[in-house]
Nucleic acid binder design. Sequence first.
DNA 1: TTGGGTGTTGAGTA
DNA 2: ATACTCAACACCCA
Length: 277
Amino acid sequence: MPELPEVETIRKTLKRFIIGKEIEEVEVFWPRIIQFPEIEMFKMNLLGQSFTDISRRGKFLIFHLDEYDLVSHLRMEGKYSVYPKDEPKDKHTHVTFTFTNGEQLRYNDVRKFGTMHLFKKGTYEAKKPIVQLAPDPFEEDFTLDYFMGKLERTTRVIKNVLLDQTVVAGLGNIYVDETLFKAGIHPEKRSHTLTKEEIKRIKKYAKETLSEAVKQGGTTIRSYVASDGEIGMFQQELFVYGQEGEPCPTCGDEIIKIRVSNRGTHLCPSCQKENRE
DNA sequence: TTGGGTGTTGAGTA
DNA sequence: ATACTCAACACCCA
């Protein structure tokens, strides 16, 4: 499900529901989701803790509590929402945090791929999975020099490099395709062959695409909803993702779908040529 | 009915 | 270093 814009939307909406709420019980129905520490310690550490804030790094949500930080990745279908605790749970609710006020924060994940790590406050940045995460396009240290340095040193195809969260955080399959379309670059172009101007365009359009999508509350293709139940609206502004067979908004040629490293990849064959002079 | 595809990522293997 | 396959899991659709 979520890439940076969806995670950011969830962060903003969920904040309103949980800040200041104190946890009195934690239940885990699918143990794999809890990566660290082991389950009993995870539950025990959270008892009596109150949520103070939610932040985001790339596609990770970071829940800040009094003495701990909870690092959560939604992978394909993870969702959070708050209910009265006696409302019946849906069959895909795998972790619940019950508050002292009778409400309950629920983690719902149809495919059960999501992960949670709980660390002592202030230590998560130095630990996996956050430690190896690159800056996202909104962060100050995502500079042109940094980005060029990364792209020059690899022969991999550009689409794969942009999906690599240790190069740039936050982009997934939708926003990589949109970014490369706007930049006029073929997704299978080798990273080290890109010119400085092309790299500048990728950097600019990655940021622009993500920020427009945040403004629209994310993209809802299938299942994504924010924590208040609202769907995203950015799908109306997609140029290539899911648009195979439609005319390119720039040149009118047909948008095609190919496979790049086994990921569905959408592009305009006229605007994004593999070898351009 | 079945198999291929889905907004993600990590491990294992050459 | 890179590429490829598989795995985690459930659902949808042709």
